Simulated scan of single mutants.
Amino acid sequence: MRRAAKVDANQPEIVQALRQAGATVQSLAAVGSGVPDLLVGFQGKTALIEVKDSAKPPSARCLTEDQLDWHGKWRGGTLAVVCDVDSALRVLGVMKRGELMEAF
């Protein structure tokens, strides 16, 4: 039996900031199986973002085994783990410059 998708407490704030910066954002949290939380489109580019809550202790912000496995197999473009609005907006900066980013 699959559990309901959990969304980190800071995810709505991050989604709002990304949208205000001009990105389109789709939550993928319900997919599970290690798939990142957010699908982000910005200036013709796409990124996947895993959201972790910076209010939690570092041990609670680690990627799960499913996430580590999924991230390790990803062969696409930008994939990032963010803990706050500033780090999420930095992902948009990387997308704007066309750099490849993989941040854990």
Rank of each mutant, 00 (worst) to 15 (best):
M1C: 11
M1K: 11
M1V: 15
R2D: 07
R2N: 10
R3N: 12
A5R: 02
V7N: 02
D8W: 08
A9P: 02
A9I: 14
N10P: 01
E13I: 12
V15E: 01
A17D: 07
A17T: 08
L18Q: 04
R19G: 04
Q20N: 12
Q20D: 14
A21V: 09
A21H: 03
G22D: 06
G22P: 01
G22K: 03
A23S: 09
T24C: 10
V25F: 00
V25Y: 02
V25S: 02
Q26K: 15
Q26E: 13
Q26M: 13
L28F: 00
A29Y: 02
A30C: 09
V31Y: 09
G32W: 07
G32H: 05
G34V: 08
V35R: 05
V35I: 15
L38F: 04
L38Y: 05
L38C: 06
L38N: 00
V40H: 04
F42A: 06
G44Q: 01
T46F: 10
T46S: 11
T46A: 11
T46M: 15
A47E: 06
L48V: 05
L48P: 01
I49E: 03
K52Q: 09
D53R: 01
D53K: 09
D53P: 03
D53N: 14
K56W: 08
K56E: 09
P58Q: 12
P58I: 09
A60C: 09
C62W: 11
C62I: 12
C62N: 13
L63A: 09
T64A: 07
T64D: 03
E65L: 12
D66C: 11
L68P: 05
D69A: 14
D69V: 13
W70R: 11
W70V: 05
H71I: 10
G72F: 10
G76M: 03
G77H: 05
T78K: 00
T78F: 00
A80I: 05
V82T: 01
V82M: 01
C83I: 14
C83D: 12
V85N: 06
V85Y: 05
V85L: 06
D86S: 14
A88M: 06
A88W: 00
L89H: 04
R90E: 11
V91M: 03
V91Y: 01
L92T: 01
L92R: 03
G93W: 05
M95Y: 04
K96H: 12
K96R: 11
R97C: 09
R97D: 11
R97P: 05
G98F: 04
G98H: 06
E99I: 15
E99F: 14
L100K: 13
M101V: 10
E102C: 12
E102M: 14
F104M: 13
